[in-house]
Design a protein around this nucleic acid. Sequence first.
DNA 1: CTGGAACCTCAAGCAATATTGAGGTCAAGT
DNA 2: ACTTGACCTCAATATTGCTTGAGGTTCCAG
Lengths: 162, 162
Amino acid sequence: MPKLPLEIKELTVGQLSERSGVAVSALHFYEAKGLITSHRTAGNQRRYSRDTLRRVAVIRVAQRVGIPLRVVAEALETLPEGRTPTPEDWARLSTEWRAELDARIDQLVRLRDRLSDCIGCGCLSLDRCALRNLDDRLGDVGPGPRRLLSRRIAQEDHYTSP
Amino acid sequence: MPKLPLEIKELTVGQLSERSGVAVSALHFYEAKGLITSHRTAGNQRRYSRDTLRRVAVIRVAQRVGIPLRVVAEALETLPEGRTPTPEDWARLSTEWRAELDARIDQLVRLRDRLSDCIGCGCLSLDRCALRNLDDRLGDVGPGPRRLLSRRIAQEDHYTSP
DNA sequence: CTGGAACCTCAAGCAATATTGAGGTCAAGT
DNA sequence: ACTTGACCTCAATATTGCTTGAGGTTCCAG
């Protein structure tokens, strides 16, 4: 059986897949989208530098927070082109994602509070129901697919008149 | 100019759209998916009972929590067929969503903690980096289309595994 | 050298969640 | 009646994030 080239410096796509837990097809996809890069061997096979592992990890984390790949790609573009990103580079990105995460958590917590109110009030009054008003706010987002990432919403208090 | 029929008891699709903040096309879509229902006038136009407003609100809330429409539809099926849902019916649903919300928040908070660790450690050790390990876990999800939902976060722990 | 795993490219498909458009109907103010 | 905005249906298109498949190449242990 063919043995994988156990290179110390670079990773094949299969190795990257195994170590990152992301399917090979997804890695190809990320590469096509410019989220990761590779260089090719003489035989046209991809080789990834080790920090790609980190890049992929960051991508997945970002996705869990609800950040679309397009946006992740933009953020990754701020990483240095020529050199391997330093821990500081990664820390900066992590911090940015963290801000998103915080915002997202905050948003959900507020949503939860509203929902609790709603349950408490028994929703007897449609016009004053938090659920109803929450929904009105959602309408402000405008047309088009309602994104995940919808920011702000739910900062308002109970709506009080019909 | 034509005046909207200002019915007290029922809503046209346009009214429902305006009051819920959801596009008419989306309402049609929800109806096609069985999330809401209507009856028709003699002229084949949709009329929605007022509690549909509530239904739509619940749908949107659920979506924000990351619950796919398919699942929302199942939950809505537990509402009474013949009668207008009571406040208690809605409260029950709200409570269910709230559990999802809590789980979701919890998940994100844990993610945040990991990320914080990672920033703190400077990510000098790839093998011990929280980010790296987090990513390994993501790989456990297995093959198959990584659904929207997983991007939207949320579901690994909740609906995918029986 | 050979066999098979791992790789390559490109195109097509899938799933969710809608929007847009074409072509036609309904209804209400003037 | 006419006009006009709101509605109707159905099909097509869009977006995101992949997977699957066909058809072919590369690599390496034996």
